Computed example of a mutant assay.
Amino acid sequence: MTKRDWVMKSTIAVLLSTSLLMGGQVGQAAAKTQDSKQSDVVNIATSLIGKDYEYKAKGPKQFGSAELATYTYKQVGITIGSTISSLSKAGKKVSQDSVEPGDLVFFSSTGSGSASFMGIYIGNDQFVYSSQGEDAVVVKSYSEYSDKFVGARRILEETSSSDNSGDDTQQAPSDLANKVIKIGEKYMGTKYKYGSSSSSTKTFDCSSFTQRVFKEAGITLPRDSRQQSTVGTTVSKKNLQKGDLLFMKASANSSSDRITHVAIYAGNGKILHTYGSPGVTYSKYDGTNWEKRVVKVKRVL
């Protein structure tokens, strides 16, 4: 039996066991959008078993390690980072023994330090990952990799019934953009502090502000502005929409396009962001120095 034949036979077994696992929970899961998303992520991840490994490949036929997670979550409408480094900081940290289906799990060959490979936990003590060594997307026993475990992150937030009022309908991008702006406005005047903690709302720097606002709208962003500029879809400045993220260099005359600031386009020629003495504020955008500093626009809604 060839390696490819073995992988495909294993795929069938995993899909059957996973279907039984998730199916047995249907009665309890139906009331929560969270559990539906978990099921979707698990089903998509397992459907990719047997696909080829290729460094940094984004799919759908070949996948790098982080890109497998990026692709899987994109299929359920969730934009996440595309590197192991950014994903290891995304979402919410969970302990090794508290992982749930859909969680991202990270490993290193030594079991310490930075992660060198990662996968998606699918339940039943299994995770799916794109393996360089096996040249394919494979399924492995989670417990057998316990000595290599270095972290886990939960991207899927539990949905509160008080937030959705029983309505599981996905919000339109325009509605979500308005929600983002409304959330941002409640922090108007909050002081600026470089390096503010991502868990704090007493002060913000530019990227902790955007991360917080989008998190409250149900969208996970990496922590810093340069990491945030790697997610979502790149759009042109002339096609700006409310809710787009604007990434800026240090000054309009700078020869370097290194990103030093991020703001949210609020529509009507304004941006919502934080800096210096005003803290969280609106600023005029059209025709200003802010506009001239923009080097990238990303849409995550």
Rank of each mutant, 00 (worst) to 15 (best):
S161R: 06
E100R: 05
Q170H: 01
L68A: 13
S47V: 04
D205R: 07
Y275Q: 13
S112F: 01
S146H: 06
S207T: 12
Y121A: 09
S277R: 08
K296L: 12
K140L: 12
V150Q: 02
T220S: 12
S114V: 08
T201I: 15
S196N: 04
I12E: 13
I183T: 13
T2F: 11
S130N: 11
A152N: 10
S225I: 00
I271V: 15
Y71P: 05
Q96W: 07
A152D: 08
L16K: 15
I44R: 12
T33G: 02
T83P: 04
S174G: 02
G279A: 10
V297F: 06
S131G: 11
G243R: 08
E54I: 04
E291H: 04
N253H: 09
I78E: 13
V94L: 09
K37F: 00
S131D: 07
G166T: 11
P60D: 09
E157D: 14
K9Q: 08
L245T: 07
W6A: 15
T210M: 05
K202S: 15
S65T: 14
S256W: 04
Q96A: 13
A115Y: 00
A66I: 02
S251L: 09
Y275C: 02
V14N: 10
S146T: 02
V128D: 10
F247V: 10
P60M: 04
G91V: 07
T288R: 00
S116V: 10
S85G: 13
N253G: 11
E216H: 04
G81E: 10
S98N: 15
I219S: 08
N289S: 14
Y129N: 13
P60I: 05
V262W: 01
S251T: 15
S199W: 00
L16G: 14
L240G: 11
D163W: 11
M8C: 01
T281Q: 10
A136H: 01
S199Y: 05
A263W: 01
G276W: 00
E134H: 08
P173T: 05
N178S: 15
E134G: 03
S160N: 06
L246N: 08
Y285N: 05
N253D: 14
D175K: 08
E158Y: 09
S277H: 02
I49A: 06
V262Y: 03
S109C: 00
F209S: 09
I181Y: 04
L176S: 13
T190Y: 02
Y145S: 15
M118K: 07
V138T: 14
L221T: 01
P60T: 12
Q228G: 01
K179Y: 03
K58Y: 02
S160D: 14
T210H: 03
Q38Y: 04
L16D: 13
I12D: 13
T79Q: 10
E158I: 12
I259C: 10
R299D: 11
D147K: 14
S114W: 05
E144N: 15
V105K: 05
K89Y: 10
T230D: 12
